[in-house]
């Protein structure tokens, strides 16, 4: 059994004191333990940003790649070795900015990947520019007159793109976030978990106080039922709740659906997996004969 201490890394995080990423790190560790996964069989693929440093502080296999590209790397890992549990983790700029195209395609593919987005509504590592989830009007270094665009809505984006597990967590509610990530890890298909992750240094609007006074958990709301595609009303409700913003902001699991994951329908994976590289040269006589 994996225990929390097994996930201790050589170094400790260097995020700003109070950063929401500490909550994400704790939740990821907790979820790995609760899901009963072996550290050697979990891979976290991340991008570049404050939050993307997370692989260094959760002891399992990690790949810290390029800004915006954690999903393609995770895709390669998962399709090469479907036996691994693959997570992708990165910031809102990383995932909804540079990586937006990959995100939409990964969701419609329903790859069996759990994607956690550390959504601090700001670019942290590059010292505070507007992000795709920054609210309209927010003044940042790159929008001194206030952001002109409206923000991306991750929940509706997930619904429209075919993700099969769509959730939103909050770094300030650790038990809830842990169970959302655990659920994502156990779900066979693409899990999109957007996480409110206060950036205490650069985002002076979306703070812990801001969220503490606003968030409510869907799981505690009896009027909300998580439903899949067979229930169009509930799907509409998921979308409506996804748009809810202001005095009350919901967190929790918005939508779940069972659909074959990409790898399940890949003919080439039926009998072997790409990481099974033979130790002898592969016979090509039959292929050669197709050129005769």
């Amino acid at each position: 059994m994996t225990e929390l201490t097994d996930l201790q890394t050589k170094t400790n995080p260097n995020w700003c004191p109070g950063c929401g990423d500490y909550g994400v790190q704790a939740a990821v560790k907790g979820a790995i333990v609760k899901a009963g996964l072996k550290t050697s069989e979990v891979v976290i693929s991340s991008g570049i940003g404050c939050g993307s440093k997370i692989p260094h502080w959760v002891k399992c296999y990690g790949f810290e790649g390029l800004h915006g590209r954690p999903l393609p790397v995770a895709t390669g890992i998962k399709l090469a070795n479907p036996e691994l549990t693959v997570m992708a983790i990165g910031g809102d700029g990383d995932g909804y900015g540079l990586g937006m195209g990959h995100l939409i395609h990964s969701m419609r593919r329903n790859l069996d990947i759990t994607y956690v987005i550390q959504d601090n509504q700001i670019y942290g590592l590059t010292t505070g520019q507007t992000s795709p989830t920054s609210e309209k009007g927010v003044r940042t270094k790159s929008t001194p007159e206030g952001a002109i665009e409206i923000p991306v809505n991750p929940i509706e984006l997930g619904l429209a793109s075919g993700a099969t597990y769509i959730a939103r967590g909050y770094a300030g509610n650790l038990p809830h976030l842990t169970s959302l990530i655990e659920g994502g890890l156990k779900h066979r298909g693409f899990a999109l978990i957007d996480v409110f992750q206060p950036c205490v240094t650069f985002n002076k609007v979306n703070t812990y106080e801001y969220f503490n006074s606003r968030v409510y958990t869907l799981e505690d709301d009896e009027s909300f039922v998580v439903a899949g595609p067979g229930d169009p009303d509930a799907r509409c409700e998921a979308s409506r709740r996804g748009r809810e913003w202001g005095d009350k902001i919901p967190i929790g699991l918005f939508y779940r659906e069972e659909r074959p994951a990409y790898g399940d329908e890949e003919a080439a994976l039926k009998e072997s997996k790409p990481v099974d590289v033979p130790d002898k040269v592969v016979d090509i006589e039959e292929l050669k004969s197709s050129f005769m």
Binding site: G65, T75, G76
Partner: peptide, 11 residues
């Protein structure tokens, strides 16, 4: 990026 991921995984 996918082939880098797959290469890292061992394919």
């Amino acid at each position: 990026n996918m082939i880098v991921g797959a290469g890292f995984a061992g394919a």
